[in-house]
């Protein structure tokens, strides 16, 4: 095949992929025709290859300057923007030049390659199936006991191997999802360890509190985090059966959202709603933190609190239900609905 074959010709030329097309006597050749006048996009490049060469060279020079500038910028410890600009200009220009070289100055064809069928002959297929079936028959049919024993052994290993792989990863959940570190008499302290006095907060104020005396690790904070809101200045009853739970309008709820466990960190003061920023569940602090909106399925558990002799807030008891999102072993809907009636 010569370049003229594909220049301006309508049909794509066949590419010699092996000795057949080149002829047995001739020396094999790897030369391909370069340009195609056929494609309107390539006509200019085919007519004036020197122009394209110039443009490619220009981009290569810009690319060289860019990567040199990147090196210099690195040595000079320049700003991230300078590093990025030099790197981007360098690599993009080299890449653009190379792509243009490939597109306009290299053999473009169109060339044709035949698809060699993937499928084997019917005979080959049958031979493979026969080998599988007949040889498996030797194992399965004639030596049933041996096969069975081997399968049993491998199967048992497969099962017992899963145990150390999974089981070594961590302890069983046990009662960890049911417990927090709040208990009767726990002193409420803020993130710095300071206890909360009855005069500390204004109406509308909000504070995240933890039980004092437990060392502060992320794992403990994650379950113990409790949000303390002062809703009013007189005692508040959020629902029936919670008469002494919110003295002087101080009310404490678990800060772990019952939807997916994000901290319920926003407080809409006017509407008295605790809002979870993750998926916008809203809990009314006055009515036992029942979800008013959003995907949360349960109210936030309420922590019963009281003032001790010196006027500091303490927990009357721990939470009466697991805090946070739902899980399979969780037994009840929560105390909210049960005691509300």
């Amino acid at each position: 095949m010569t370049p003229e074959d594909s220049l301006g010709a309508g049909d794509p030329g066949a590419l010699a992929t092996d000795g057949h097309a080149a002829g047995d006597g001739e020396r094999p050749t790897g030369v391909l025709p370069v340009a195609s006048m056929d494609d309107p996009h390539l006509q200019d490049a085919a007519r004036y290859p020197r122009r394209v060469e110039g443009i490619v060279a220009l981009f290569f020079v810009l690319g060289i300057l860019g990567v040199c500038a990147f090196g210099a910028a690195y040595v000079e410890n320049a700003d991230t923007q300078v590093l990025a600009a030099s790197l981007a200009v360098g690599l993009f220009c080299l890449g653009f030049g190379l792509t243009a070289w490939g597109k306009y100055l290299m053999p473009q064809g169109p060339f044709v390659e035949a698809r060699h069928p993937l499928a084997s002959s019917k005979r080959d297929r049958e031979a493979m199936a026969a080998a599988l079936v007949e040889r498996t028959g030797v194992v399965v049919k004639r030596r049933k006991m041996l096969g069975g024993l081997l399968a049993t052994g491998m199967g048992i290993f497969g099962i017992v191997a899963v145990f150390p792989l999974l089981r070594s990863l961590g302890p069983k959940p046990g009662s960890s999802l049911f417990r927090t570190n709040w208990k009767k008499g726990s002193l409420l302290v803020d993130a710095t360890g300071k206890p909360v006095h009855r005069t500390d907060m204004q109406v509308g104020g909000l504070l995240t509190v933890f039980p004092k005396g437990t060392e502060t690790t992320a794992t403990k904070e994650a379950v113990d985090q409790t949000v303390l809101v002062r809703v009013q200045s007189t005692p508040l009853v959020t629902m029936k059966g919670r008469t002494d739970w919110a003295p002087d309008g101080y009310v404490a709820y678990s800060k772990v959202c019952t939807h997916l466990g994000c901290p319920v960190g926003l407080y809409e003061q006017e509407l008295e709603l605790l809002v979870c920023p993750c998926h916008q569940s809203m809990f009314n602090v006055r009515d036992g933190a029942f979800p008013q909106f959003g995907p949360a399925p349960r109210p936030l558990p309420q922590l019963p609190i009281y003032f001790d002799g010196t006027g500091y807030l303490r927990a009357r008891a721990g939470y009466d239900q697991p805090v946070g999102p739902g899980f399979w072993e969780r037994t009840t809907q929560g105390n909210g609905k049960a005691s509300a009636t």
Binding site: G95, F96, G97, T99, K103, Q108, G109, P110, F111
Partner: peptide
Amino acid sequence: VVGSPMYPTFMAKTTGFLLMVTGITGA
């Protein structure tokens, strides 16, 4: 299959494209 061959045309174009993608990611 009708198109351009692996070597050198496609190799040049695709290597250039790799460099351009890297350059744009850098920017």
